[in-house]
Amino acid sequence: MRALLLTRSPDLSAAVTDVSEADLPGGDVLVDVSHSSLNYKDGLAITGRGKIVRGAFPFVPGIDLAGTVAESASDDWAPGDRVVLTGWGTGEDRWGGYAERARASAEHLVRLPDGLSAEDAMWIGTAGFTAALSVLALEAHGVAPGGGPVAVTGASGGVGSMATALLAAAGHEVSAVTGTASAHDYLRALGAAEIVGRETLAEASDPPLQKGVWAGAVDSVGGTTLAALLAQARRHACVAACGLAGGPDLATTVFPFILRGVTLAGIDSNTAPPDLRERAWGRLADAAAAGHLAAVEKTVIGLDDLVEWAGRIVDGDTVGRVVVDVRA
C-alpha cells in the first residue's frame, strides 16, 4: 500500500513509498482509508519543526482518517461500516492516516454520521472536531448568543474557520482575530461580525485586568494572545484554549478568575470520551447539512503533495482546511 513514510537517519526525511500492511500497528479493526487531512500538527511532524512523532521510525503520520471497515474482530464494527478516527495518538504514537490502510482500536472509532462523506469528514477533521468541542464548552459555561462578542483567534486557520462558522450559525457575534489581510472577506463569509487585527492581542496583558470585552473566546494561539484574552474577558466569560500556534507559555494572574469569575476551559481533542465525540460530530453533521460550513475553504491534495503543503501550513500560508485524498 502507498503511504507517506517518515524516516530518520539521522536527519528526518519524508517520501511517498510502498509499505507492507504487515507493518501496521496492532488493532482489532482494519480500515480502508480514503481520506485524511493536513493539520498544523501534521505539518510540524512532516517538517520536523515540532516533536510530534513519539512512535518509532519509520513512521506514517496523519492525525485524522476516514474510510470504511475492511476487517473487524469487534462486534461493534462490520466490513463496510463508514468510520472516522481522530486523536488517540494517531499520527503521533501509532501510524496514522497517510496510508491506504490503517489499524485502530474499536473503541477509538466514531461512526460517520449520515449525510457526511469521507471527504466531508476530513474537510471537518480534527480542526472542526476541536472547534465543535470548544463551542460546546462555551455553551456549557453559559456563553449564549446576545451576551456579547466572542473572539476567535487564528480565525483563518482550520480550527478558527470552523469555530467562526459554528458560532455565527448559533447566533453569536463573532470577532475574528487574524493577521491575514487577504482573509477578511473569507471570514465575513463565514459569519464574522467583526475583523480584529491579531496585533490587538499580541501585547503583554499589563495591567492584568483590562476593560471587559469578550463574553467568550476560542483560542488556538496560546501565549500572549491567550493572556490578553483573559485580561479582557468579561465577568463570567469562558475562554476555550485549544492550541499553541503562538507558543505554550502563559503569563497571566489569578485576577480574571477570582475577580471576574472567568473560566479557562481546556480542550483536549485527542482523548475526548466517546459520548462527547458523538455529540460533537452530530453537531458538525447538522451544521454541514444546514449549509453553515459551506464557506469554509477546502483544498484537496494527494499524498504526493503533502511535503510541500506541510511547509505551507506551518508557515501560516493556508486558509481553511486541507483534505488529503489518499487514493489520488
Results as ranks from 00 to 15, higher is better:
P248W: 07
V254E: 00
E199N: 14
S220K: 01
A240K: 03
G216R: 09
T252Q: 04
A202Y: 15
Q210A: 02
V239W: 01
E199C: 13
T200D: 15
L264F: 11
R235S: 09
C242D: 07
P207N: 00
T263P: 10
V239M: 01
L201Y: 14
T225V: 12
T200M: 14
W214T: 02
F257H: 07
G216C: 08
G222L: 05
T224M: 06
T263E: 13
L209M: 03
A202D: 14
L250I: 05
L244V: 11
L250H: 07
V262Q: 10
L259V: 13
V218C: 08
L259T: 12
S220Q: 01
I258C: 11
A228M: 09
S205R: 11
D206K: 04
H236L: 15
G223R: 04
L201N: 14
L259N: 11
E199D: 15
P207R: 00
P208F: 03
P248F: 09
G261S: 06
Q232W: 10
E203T: 14
R260H: 13
F257W: 05
E199A: 15
V239S: 01
T263W: 10
H236M: 14
V218R: 07
A204P: 04
C242L: 06
T263S: 12
P207V: 00
G216T: 05
A251W: 06
P208Q: 02
T252H: 02
R234P: 09
R235Q: 07
G223D: 06
A251L: 08
C242G: 08
S205I: 04
D249Y: 08
A240N: 05
A245T: 06
E203I: 11
R234E: 13
L201K: 12
G247V: 15
S205H: 10
G247H: 15
V218G: 06
G247E: 15
T200C: 14
K211G: 11
R234I: 08
S205E: 12
H236N: 14
V213N: 00
L226A: 06
C242A: 09
S220M: 01
V262Y: 12
P248V: 12
V262R: 12
C242S: 10
C238A: 12
D206T: 06
G261V: 07
A241E: 11
G216N: 09
L230R: 03
V254G: 02
A251P: 05
W214V: 02
W214L: 02
G223Q: 02
R234F: 09
G247W: 15
L201A: 13
L264D: 10
V254A: 09
G247F: 14
P248D: 12
A217S: 03
A217K: 04
C238E: 07
P248H: 10
P256D: 14
S205P: 15
G212Q: 00
C242H: 07
I258M: 10
H236Q: 13
G261H: 08
